[in-house]
Design a protein around this nucleic acid. Structure first.
Ligand code: ZN
Ligand code: ZN
Ligand code: ZN
Ligand code: ZN
Lengths: 160, 160
DNA sequence: TTCGGTATTGATATGTTATAACATATCTAC
DNA sequence: GTAGATATGTTATAACATATCAATACCGAA
């Protein structure tokens, strides 16, 4: 994969590699990547955008499944809790992790307000600063949600 | 106000000063801090916790107003868009700004998962790092949401 | 292999958060 | 006072998420 999801990249390879990683990690860790969970991950991987649970349900329904809300939420819970996907709080939506090899990590997201694209950044040095800043105040960070909203490179050029 | 909201402080003064600041800024900027907006801000200021729109509606109803959802959301939109309150994405809830003098700013929040207290930190150096990191990727940050979840000082001591 | 516990799925109902749409009231400027 | 803009009242509905319980699939131990 190229530097980040805002730039052109071999997206079929991007999907295949994420799926392969998920299968390998599940096998290694004794997790069950069932058909439903895998299908939801595939749906998330199709685009570098965040999908709502009901978007996923709509896709499943289009494939003939009569999927009800718990179906999507259960699969998403599995994927999120094991680090194969993330929840974007600002959008009430979900996106496949682009760094599933790293296991649990503290991602940061850039959300384009124009085209809805979402890119995940790797290990933002900055975040370590935040965590230690919190520690100085006596607060023990367990999870973080860092989401930046703005214009992606393509949309910046299109409407400067 | 003391260093942050996790520690004891003169909360009546905390409320009064935030209200005074809001009134002053609205006067200076030609904004209308109407009775409803002011009341919602007062409700938010009562505690250093985030309240959902429907929590606010319940308080308004308890005071005799038959307030419907748009009443809360409109007041919250006003308060948030002018920097008197913030939305906590992770909680789908709202909290009064503790730094209303600074006008628009990029806050970071620490959310205690045990007691639901929320503290706002001032100008986290770290965040500047995130923004410049995004810039390097060609992404123009316009808004940010930085929310840390964990245990506040009091809850850390209570259950170590 | 069969049993029994655990994890997953199916299905229905409900809870929670947020906005659309349109009417009415209030304020401000002319 | 009238007109335009802003704010509020009111109803309905969209969008997001979970509770509950029954049925089935899976997996290791007897
Ligand atoms: Zn890709
Ligand atoms: Zn874009
Ligand atoms: Zn206070
Ligand atoms: Zn606490």
């Amino acid at each position: 994969m190229s530097q980040n999801q805002f730039h052109d990249h071999d997206h079929q390879g991007c999907i295949a590699s994420a799926l392969a990683t998920a299968e390998a990690r599940c096998a290694a860790e004794g997790l069950r990547l069932t058909a439903q969970r895998k299908r939801v991950l595939e749906i998330l991987l199709e685009e570098h955008r965040a999908l709502g649970a009901y978007d996923i349900l709509a896709r499943l329904s289009a494939e003939g499944q009569n999927a009800q809300p718990p179906v999507a939420y259960r699969a998403l819970d599995f994927l999120v809790s094991h680090g194969f996907a993330h929840r974007i709080e600002r959008l009430n939506a979900y996106i496949a992790c682009t760094l599933p090899n790293e296991g649990a990590h503290m991602p940061a997201f850039m959300i384009c307000r124009n085209c809805d694209m979402v890119a995940e950044t790797g290990r933002p040095e900055a975040e370590l600063g935040l965590v230690s800043e919190a520690k100085n105040l006596g607060f023990a960070v367990e999870r973080s949600s860092v989401e930046l909203e703005g214009l992606c490179p393509a949309c910046r050029e299109a409407r400067p």
